[in-house]
Nucleic acid binder design. Structure first.
Length: 256
DNA sequence: ATGGCCTGCAACGCAGGA
């Protein structure tokens, strides 16, 4: 099973990129973030014409996540149960026995912002959700924009980013408390060359200079991670005309 | 170069992203 994640920064603007990328990569499941559209405006028909069905948790203008797949979804779950959140950031479903989540973790703005406290509370609630999900679904993948660079290898200039949002010790600890449940960062299951990132600021020619961060992850439960055959970031769409600022990340599993 | 962009919404500037 091929599972991918991509923060598209507006599905309306990026639809042609997504369709072209699906045609080429043929993932079984693609988790999308920042679709920035209401459910009824999601391009279900264009995706269906490519052989993909869609489930959507959208909102107007901001946030919004979706799962598009060649496999029929079951047991669809919206949001974090028991945690009230107007912002649409979590969508889960079961695909051929594998539980898959599309996540859009809050950005946090800066460590002094109320949005940063929201982010840390949100991550704590997510941890609770995933600890329960792991008891129900041994095969669990959590794919999304985590808005946390797990460690300094995931930052082009760790000294410049030290203490900044996406890199603070509290954010990294919150992410570690999730991976310590038994959810492994698929990318780090394999030897990887340095300088591999999934997001580059639109400004300052940062992509051309590879000044990026790795904040888009596919986490896999112990059982699922044992079947992982590779994980890679595809930087190509970041170089296309009018790109998202994020690149897709792909993990492959040898389940059936 | 110590800064450079992009999106949606509602308008012609803002909020938000990371």
């Amino acid at each position: 099973m091929k599972v991918a994640t991509w923060n598209v920064n507006s599905i309306k603007v990026r639809l042609e990129h997504v369709l072209a990328w699906l045609d080429r990569e043929q993932p079984d499941v693609l988790a999308l973030q920042e679709i920035k559209t209401k459910d009824e405006d999601f391009p279900v028909d264009a995706l269906r014409a490519r052989g993909y069905s869609s489930i959507v948790s959208g909102q107007a203008g901001y946030n919004g996540v979706a799962l598009v797949s060649r496999i029929a979804p079951a047991e669809v779950a919206h949001g974090i149960g028991g945690y009230v959140d107007e912002q649409k950031r979590v969508l889960g479903a079961t695909y051929a026995g594998v539980r898959i989540y599309s996540l859009y973790v809050p950005n946090g703005e800066n460590p002094e912002s109320p949005k940063y406290r929201y982010k840390l509370g949100w991550l704590a609630a997510l941890r609770n959700l995933l600890s329960v999900e792991l008891t129900r679904y041994p095969q669990l993948a959590v794919a999304g924009d985590f808005n946390v660079a797990p460690d300094d290898r995931d930052v082009y200039d760790p000294a410049a980013w030290a203490g900044s949002v996406l890199c603070t010790p509290a954010e990294r600890a919150a992410l570690a408390s999730i991976t310590e449940l038994g959810l492994r960062d698929s990318f780090r299951l394999f030897d990887q060359p340095p300088g591999k990132y999934s997001w580059w600021d639109y400004r300052a020619g940062n992509f051309r200079r590879n000044r990026g961060l790795r904040i888009d992850l596919v986490l896999a439960s112990r059982s699922l991670s044992q079947t992982c055959t590779n994980c890679r970031i595809d930087p190509e769409p970041r170089g296309w005309d009018r790109p998202s600022d994020h690149a897709p990340v792909v993990a492959e599993f040898s389940t059936q």
